[in-house]
Measured scan of single mutants.
Amino acid sequence: TEYKLVVVGAGGVGKSALTIQLIQNHFVDEYDPTIEDSYRKQVVIDGETCLLDILDTAGQEEYSAMRDQYMRTGEGFLCVFAINNTKSFEDIHQYREQIKRVKDSDDVPMVLVGNKCDLAARTVESRQAQDLARSYGIPYIETSAKTRQGVEDAFYTLVREIRQH
């Protein structure tokens, strides 16, 4: 089974770092803004072998026109913010609204991801993020692309959301 996953969120929150940590098991430290990259990885989730087709997208506003296209083809979405960047957390709402509009559905598989949880300088409390996820009816997972904490959990949870859909 193949799953088309799309990673969305503001610029600099760590979308590529999360994806590369999942696929290649290493942490990319330097920031190089993405336009669009796709990665494929075969994994076993709950005993089922599946192929993850992951689209890593641009957070930069100037590429926002490309969003409709990949939102149409994606089956599930990782909505990523950084726990030390309140603005990126506030941006999640717009991504969710755009996904709902493009998919013409209120019920699209999504996982809210709070990345950079290895950093002490948190400005978005776990509780705020949990409340937001609960209001959307989606899971919330904290990750660190640096330490790998929660990385597999985030992507695998999204696959489970798609399966249950």
Rank of each mutant, 00 (worst) to 15 (best):
S88H: 05
I45H: 01
Q21D: 15
A154V: 10
D118C: 14
I83M: 06
T49G: 05
R148E: 14
R40K: 04
A82D: 11
D53N: 05
V7L: 10
V8C: 09
A121N: 09
P109K: 04
K41A: 13
V6C: 10
M110T: 02
G137M: 10
D46I: 11
E2F: 02
D106L: 05
T123R: 09
A120M: 11
N115K: 14
I20Q: 00
E97S: 08
V108L: 06
P109H: 08
G114Y: 09
T49C: 03
T49P: 02
I99W: 01
R101K: 01
Y39C: 05
T123S: 07
R72C: 10
T34P: 04
M110K: 00
V102K: 01
D106I: 03
T157S: 11
R67W: 11
A121R: 10
K41P: 15
M71K: 13
E142H: 11
Y3A: 03
V43D: 02
D29S: 04
R122K: 14
S144W: 14
I20R: 02
V80E: 02
G12W: 14
Y70M: 15
N85V: 07
L5V: 02
S64E: 07
I35C: 08
R163N: 08
M71A: 03
E75P: 02
N85T: 04
A65Y: 07
L51K: 07
E161M: 14
I23T: 05
G59N: 08
T73Y: 01
E75W: 08
G14A: 00
A145G: 15
G11W: 15
I83D: 09
F89P: 01
Q164I: 06
T1C: 03
T19G: 13
D29E: 03
Y136E: 03
G12R: 14
Q24A: 13
Y140E: 01
R122F: 03
M66I: 03
I45V: 07
R127H: 11
I20N: 01
A154F: 09
G12H: 15
E61T: 13
Q98C: 00
V7T: 08
F155C: 14
Q60N: 15
F27D: 00
Q98P: 02
G47S: 05
Y31T: 09
T123N: 09
G114M: 14
L52E: 02
E152T: 10
D32I: 10
V159A: 08
L112F: 12
Y63T: 15
P33W: 09
I92R: 03
S126T: 11
Q69S: 08
D107T: 04
R148I: 14
Q94T: 11
S135K: 14
L22K: 15
V113P: 10
K41E: 03
V43K: 05
R163K: 14
S64P: 15
P139G: 05
G11Q: 15
D131N: 07
V108R: 04
M66G: 15
Y63A: 15
Q149Y: 04
L52S: 05
F89M: 06
E152Q: 13
P109C: 05
K116I: 15
V13Q: 14
H26D: 07
R122C: 10
I92M: 12
N84W: 07
Y156Q: 14
G11I: 15
F27C: 07
Q94H: 05
Y70K: 07
G47N: 00
E161V: 12
D37K: 02
V111T: 11
E97H: 05
Q128N: 12
A65F: 01
K4T: 05
F89Q: 02
V111D: 08
V7D: 00
K15L: 00
M71Y: 04
L22F: 10
L18V: 05
Q42A: 02
Y95V: 12
I138Y: 02
R148S: 11
N25W: 09
Q128V: 07
N84I: 12
E125D: 08
E36R: 01
Y95S: 03
Y156P: 13
I54D: 00
K146V: 15
R127Y: 10
N115T: 14
S88I: 02
A120H: 08
R72V: 05
S38I: 02
Q42P: 08
R40E: 01
N25D: 10
P139V: 09
L112E: 08
I20P: 00
H165G: 12
A121L: 06
G12M: 15
T157G: 02
T157K: 08
V7A: 11
S144Q: 15
I99T: 02
V8P: 01
K87W: 03
L132Y: 14
T123Q: 11
I99L: 08
G12T: 15
C50R: 02
F77W: 03
L52H: 01
Q130L: 07
R163Q: 13
N84Y: 09
E161F: 03
E61A: 11
G14W: 00
S88M: 04
G11A: 15
V80T: 05
N85S: 06
P139I: 08
R160L: 09
Q21M: 09
I23A: 09
L5F: 04
Q149R: 09
Q164E: 13
T143Q: 05
R96P: 06
Y39T: 00
G150L: 13
E152V: 10
I141M: 13
